[in-house]
Each structure stands twice: as C-alpha cells, then as structure tokens.
Design a binder for these strands. Sequence first.
DNA 1: TATTGTTATACTCTATAACTATA
DNA 2: TATAGTTATAGAGTATAACAATA
Lengths: 145, 145
Amino acid sequence: MGEGPDPGQAEEIIGRLLELFRRMQANFEETTAGLGLTVAEGQALHQLDTPVPMRSMAESLWCDASYVTVLADRLEARGLIMRVPDPDDRRVRRLALTEAGRALRDELIATVHATTPALAGLDAAQRAGLLELLKVLATDRDAPR
Amino acid sequence: MGEGPDPGQAEEIIGRLLELFRRMQANFEETTAGLGLTVAEGQALHQLDTPVPMRSMAESLWCDASYVTVLADRLEARGLIMRVPDPDDRRVRRLALTEAGRALRDELIATVHATTPALAGLDAAQRAGLLELLKVLATDRDAPR
DNA sequence: TATTGTTATACTCTATAACTATA
DNA sequence: TATAGTTATAGAGTATAACAATA
C-alpha cells in the first residue's frame, strides 16, 4: 500500500496560499491605489518593461482581449503608455511605456518590493527556492478563456 | 561592500506570484462555477464548517455586511444554508449548512484540492519546500477594514 | 478561413447610505 | 447610543458578441 498524496498537507498549503494571496492583494491594491491605479492597471504596467502585444498582455493578465483594450485606453489617456505598431504583423499593436509611464512603473515596483509580504521574511536562499517553485508552477498553463 | 538584494530576482518573483494569483483565482472561479456558485459563495461555504454569525462571515470574507446578506439570500434560496437565531443575542443570525450545503461544500473542497495550480505541478519534495516557505511568510496579519 | 484588436453592451461583484430591530 | 442585519442603489471590473482589418 503506497502512501498517496497527503490531504492534510495539501489543505494546509492551500490555506496558507489563500491567506498569503489575500495579504498580497490587499497590499498591492493599497499600493496601486496610492498611485491612482487599479490592480489590473498596476499589473499591466508591471508587465511593460519592454513593449508587449496586446494579445500577450491578455494572456499575462488572464483576462479577455477586450479588457486589455479598456486598460490600454485608460493608461493611454493618462499618458502612461502608447500603442505602437508591430513591424512584422500589421494587425498587432504593442503597448509601450512613455517616459511618465516608466517613472510610474519604477515607483510602483519600488513600493511593491519594499512592502510585499511574499518577500519581506525571506533570505537569499529562500528567495531562490521560491523562484524555483514558481518556475515549476508556470509550466503547465492552460490558456485563459 | 556586501551585495544587496537582487532587484531583478525580486521583480521576477513578484511577477510570477501575481500571475499565479490570477491563475488561482481563475481556477477557483471555474471550480465554483461548475458547482453553480460564485467565488464569494464558494468562499462563504468554505467558511461554514460550523454555524457562523453573519458579522463574523463579513470579517472572514473581508467584505461589507450588506454583501453577506446578498450571499446568504442566494445560498438560502438554493437550500444550501439556513439562517438560525442566536440564543444569546436576538439581533444575531447565524449561517448554518443544510444537508445539501454540507454535501456541496465537501465536493467544493475536494475539487479545489485536486485542481489548484499551486499544487498540480509539484512533487512531494517540492510541496514540502513550498510549505516551509509559506510557514516563514506567515507573519503578522492586519485586521480587515 | 483564422487572428488581432475595437466597440457596444450587459452582467456580476461589492460598497455606501438609509432604515429596522435589538442591545 | 451602538450594533446586527436588511434594502435600495450605484459604481467598478470584466466578459460576450458582433465587427473591421489583416494574415
């Protein structure tokens, strides 16, 4: 009789993850709100180190493409991003930071780094271990609806 | 001159955590939808191992009391819970599972355990490592608004 | 024919404010 | 006066469907 997966362990992991994410969400919401952004706008900005096709953004955010249009409209209206054409495929539009957008992104990331509960209590080795786990979890991804 | 924390690594960790969070939310949404529940209804059901005053439920879910009324109305209409009076304080109503509600809660929990992205791709050793990290991260918590 | 992005629309979640009943 | 719960309402987030342009 081999031992199956430990249900008690799984339940504890899920419970702790849900609590951690609740804390992260609250923290991130507070940070973005302080910068005049919604959570989704903040996440989009975080993705934009380099220009990103809108379709890719939808996959990163696990949301519908039409919602990326909404987010892009708002960020563009505030002068934080621009829609730039893709040289290879004329259907594609990439989202790219403006100067102001870059500055706000830097501020966002600095604040998140300083306050996010998922990093505060970890030393270098633990951070490396966490990153390894997150890479494993990123592999088997279904497509967002 | 000691090396400070690695900003690039921290940025990657945060990005992956944010994405994982979105995926877990999407997965939980799919699971609850398959049972005819919204996310909040599923969370409420998860809380109801034993009867809970509506005010306490609002604190657990980090939401306004008026929304608990909405949730309770829907769950009660489906025969999953009942409002039971509190013997000590006639203002208080406790939410308690019915037989059907208990069955659905069991099914919900089993499905979440089987499908949540934070567990699906990990072997036993990785789960143990994740749990260790989560324990480190479980530090001081703020109270909900 | 399939895919990227947009528009218009509608639905769902959730909070705020005013109210009743009880403490 | 303060607290538990309810009602009505409004705002924000997000998806769906139909569409245009391009592949």
